Amino acid sequence: MIHLQHVTKEFAPKRGLFDVSFTVEPGMVFGFIGPNGAGKSTAIRQLMGLIQADSGHATIGGYDCWNQSQDVKRIVGYLPGEINLPGDFTGEQVLHLMQQLHQSKPERQSELLEQFPFETKTKIRKMSKGMKQKLALVGCFMKDAPVYLLDEPTSGLDPLMQERFLSLVDKERQRGKAILMSSHHFPEMEKSCDRAALIKEGRIIIEADIHELVRSSRKQYTIEFGLEAQAEQFALQIGSQRFQNHVSFFTSNERTLNQIIRLLTEYDVRAIQTSADDLEHVFLHYYSEEEPS
């Protein structure tokens, strides 16, 4: 449904997109993960036909994102990373305008407002960031489009609204929607995405099934020894650091881990702890590998 093929859009060295390719199928939530300035919003703007690529090709639903941008916009629900709406409009006026533009059902708008409530008669310029974000979410999803492009969708939302948003995304996925979601908020991506791509300086450094990414991450192990002298000896043995009677190390290699476990049979070990696998560890692991030595 969403296809980027070798898309490049260079603004400056290491700024833009460079040979980016990925596909989002119907019924899939695809996570685009990276820090600010990594190229996430540039990719989404390219898909919306807001900027033209230097090279490569992007389509949504078979429509060329640049040459057939009107057809693309017709089938896409878009949530931009920065919400810019007329300050003197009320939320109610904005939603009424969106309803007319998208010819959406009033019932869907009402359902979404129950999930993401705010005072619709408040003018945009008087709204908090959270209120504006809820207004934008309602406006985006009331379109009931087959494709959603969501740029930092939970920015400004409180934890309850974030959980409701994730439930909405899961419901839309089950309805067969293709959803591309960019974020640097790891827990929400881990909970909601099927696949993910990590992007740095405009280049995808890895793309995989979200659970495969987590399983392949480098994990931290902390070992508590009965004696501080043993901890010091073991730390020297494996080339790691010691804090009192604790030694910590990182590895994703099963062979290395088994060798360390065999070494531990010679010591008085009180406890072994491992860090919980999560997407943030994956992100930091791959980013640290990419840093120059």
Rank of each mutant, 00 (worst) to 15 (best):
G27V: 08
L47E: 01
Q241I: 11
L264G: 06
D64M: 02
I60D: 11
S288I: 01
P13M: 08
F225H: 07
K123N: 00
T23R: 15
F116D: 00
V24M: 14
K14H: 04
L257W: 12
G49M: 11
A136D: 02
I260S: 10
N84Y: 14
V76T: 14
M131H: 03
K9V: 00
Q70A: 05
R270Q: 08
K40F: 03
A12W: 11
L213R: 12
H184L: 14
A58D: 02
F141S: 08
Q70P: 00
Y286M: 06
M127V: 07
T120C: 06
H185S: 05
L168N: 01
H184D: 08
V29K: 04
F234P: 00
K123H: 00
Q109C: 10
A235G: 09
S155H: 10
G61D: 04
T251P: 03
T256Y: 09
N36W: 02
A235Y: 15
F30M: 07
V72F: 09
E172C: 12
R255K: 15
E111Q: 13
F283C: 01
E224S: 10
E254S: 15
L150M: 15
G49I: 08
F243L: 13
K73G: 10
Q100M: 01
I60T: 10
L137K: 04
Q70S: 05
A53T: 07
G56M: 07
E172D: 10
G34Q: 08
F250C: 07
P80K: 08
F234A: 00
N253Q: 11
V76I: 14
K40D: 02
S41P: 05
S104T: 04
N253E: 12
K177H: 04
H57D: 03
S293G: 02
Q273Y: 15
I223E: 01
L4F: 07
S21W: 13
S167A: 15
M131C: 05
R173V: 09
R242H: 11
E207P: 08
V269R: 08
F116E: 00
H184W: 13
E152I: 15
S216T: 13
L47Q: 11
E291G: 11
L284P: 02
G139F: 00
N36I: 06
L95Q: 03
Q68L: 01
E266Y: 04
K14R: 06
